[in-house]
Amino acid sequence: MTKKLWFLPIVCLYFIFGWAAPSASAGAPADTNLYSRLAVSTAGTFFPQTASSVITTSADTDTYYKEASGKSGTSLKSALHRIISGNTKLSYSQVWDALKETDEDPANPNNVILLYTQESRAKSKNGGSVGDWNREHVWAKSHGNFGTSAGPGTDIHHLRPADVQVNSARGNMDFDNGGSEYPKAPGNYYDGDSWEPRDEVKGDVARMLFYMAVRYEGDDGYPDLELNDKTGNGSAPYMGKLSVLLKWNKQDPVDSKEKRRNELIYEDYQHNRNPFIDHPEWADEIWK
């Protein structure tokens, strides 16, 4: 009997430490909750595990961009224009509510994050007074005189919450490096005709402008918006400085906040995407 049962302690140990152990490979995180696995951004920043911080891709982007596959230069730009046009258009008042979702502070669902200052401010503080936040047109609406009627003036792919005073200081300036630091928004610089945003959103700004230059080509009653390598473009339908924007696109890569924002706009609001968040490399393919 002793000879037959000598292996029982080994079997028991195997059950306890072998079969009972997780089947995941060594080093895998213990917490496999969906929110936990998706709450870490590509830049390594951890966000609270809330539904609003989860990144899910609702679109099959390969299928969405099928027409653009293998193209470059003007052919790629034209293909992307066809893909992202025909989007749902919001009223200017609807933009308030949209921004409260797309730019929600992942650490505080009652607040939004302001573009140039990174400040978290109460959603209820939207307005036009000092201490409020308002709707910043990253592509200044005077560059093409498209105003705030439905169309480019309400396209939330380029509209972001910003402090009222900082928004006013940026005005309709083009984007470039250099100038004096703006005291109410440390890390942002300005001179007579250009604005340099803080490093953390340089790429965001560039990719929003790339989107606008592709979406609005003058074939649907809206201005033909184009990027050039100048500043001081005034009321012409141009924004610069293109060479700097292309550098910013590489300097500040796409992060989880941009991806989440792109998904929300696609899924809940305009039903089109910013191609340069999904494929930032396409900027160099178009503007060589």
Rank of each mutant, 00 (worst) to 15 (best):
T102W: 11
A51F: 08
T50Q: 07
N108P: 03
I55P: 01
S36D: 14
Y64L: 15
T74R: 12
T50C: 01
L114S: 13
N87I: 00
D60H: 01
P48W: 04
A79G: 10
K89R: 14
K89G: 01
D105F: 12
S69V: 03
Y65H: 04
S91R: 04
A79K: 08
F47S: 07
T63P: 00
S36Q: 10
A79P: 04
D103T: 07
V54F: 05
S120Y: 08
A107P: 01
T42A: 05
K66W: 05
P106H: 06
D103G: 06
I83H: 06
H81P: 09
R37A: 15
D60I: 01
T88R: 12
A79I: 09
A68L: 09
R37F: 03
K100Q: 15
D97H: 04
A51C: 00
A39W: 01
H81V: 10
V95K: 02
S41P: 00
N87W: 02
K77T: 02
I84Q: 03
P48V: 03
S41T: 15
G44Y: 06
S52W: 11
A98L: 05
T88K: 13
F46G: 00
T45K: 10
S69Q: 15
S91E: 05
K100D: 08
P48L: 09
V54W: 03
A98P: 06
G86N: 11
Q118V: 00
T45V: 15
S58A: 10
H81M: 09
G70H: 11
N111T: 08
Y64K: 07
V112E: 07
T117S: 15
R37V: 13
A51P: 01
N111L: 06
I113R: 14
D97F: 10
G44Q: 04
T57V: 02
V54D: 02
N110I: 00
A51S: 12
Y92G: 06
N111P: 03
V54E: 05
I84H: 03
K100W: 04
N111Y: 10
Q94D: 15
S72E: 12
D103V: 05
E104F: 01
T74C: 02
F47H: 06
G70F: 10
S69Y: 03
T45I: 13
S85E: 08
L80W: 08
A68N: 04
N111Q: 11
D60Y: 00
K100H: 07
T63G: 02
A43I: 05
P48G: 01
I113P: 04
S91L: 09
P106Q: 10
Y64D: 02
W96L: 06
L90T: 06
K89V: 12
S52F: 08
A51D: 15
Y92D: 05
V40P: 00
V40F: 02
S36A: 12
T74K: 14
Y92L: 05
T45L: 11
L38Q: 12
D103H: 15
S72I: 12
Y116Q: 07
G73F: 13
H81F: 07
L114Y: 11
Q94P: 03
T61E: 10
S91K: 10
S75V: 13
V54A: 11
A43S: 14
R37C: 08
L115E: 10
A98E: 14
Y65F: 15
K100P: 03
W96V: 13
T57S: 01
S85D: 14
T50Y: 02
H81R: 09
A51I: 05
Q94E: 15
T102N: 08
L90C: 07
T63Y: 03
G73N: 10
I55E: 06
E67A: 15
L99I: 14
A43V: 02
L38S: 10
L114D: 06
